[in-house]
């Protein structure tokens, strides 16, 4: 969607404040839910991953995604080369040329080769007729 603002910094609260392993973070106070007495999440055993590990992997992944994006942009932005834009662009010129050439040939009787000769003569490149 078009209604995007500039990417703001993520507002993740700093989690390093929790003291490491010595004082395990206790499960959050289960707020007495006004609607239904939902069971508070059981104090779970420690997860098998740590925040530092996640952070390191996050950096690797971010690098990977950025590299992939740069590669894609390089492939698309090429002026000379086999890119999609080039294929479509050359094709458009070719479609246009075929249509015009056929129309001119129908109207004037000069075939494609004659037309090329006329252009080259009129542009002053060489005298072919």
């Amino acid at each position: 969607s078009q209604a995007e603002g500039p990417l703001r910094r993520p507002s993740v609260p700093v989690r390093e404040a929790t003291p490491p392993l010595s004082a395990r973070p206790s499960p959050p106070d289960a707020p007495p839910s006004p609607t239904t007495p939902a069971p508070a999440p059981a104090p779970a055993p420690s997860s098998f991953v740590t925040v530092e590990y996640q952070r390191q992997r996050a950096r690797e992944l971010q690098q990977y995604f950025q590299d992939r994006k740069a590669e894609r942009q390089a492939a698309e932005g090429r002026i000379f080369g086999w890119s999609v834009k080039n294929e479509i662009g050359n094709g458009r010129w070719a479609m246009f040329g075929v249509a015009v050439g056929l129309l001119t040939e129908y109207a004037t009787g000069s075939d494609f080769v004659d037309q090329m000769k006329i252009i080259i003569s009129n542009l002053g490149i060489a005298d072919l007729e």
Binding site: E87, G91, A94, M95, V98, E105, D111, V113
Partner: peptide, 28 residues
């Protein structure tokens, strides 16, 4: 658009070559 452009690219080169060989207009 892609397929039409591919066909046109082949077509324009093709018509040139054919007309060179035949020495007559292709519409004729």
């Amino acid at each position: 658009e892609r397929w039409n452009s591919r066909a046109a690219m082949l077509g324009i080169i093709g018509i040139f070559l054919v007309e060179l060989i035949i020495q007559k207009g292709i519409l004729q």
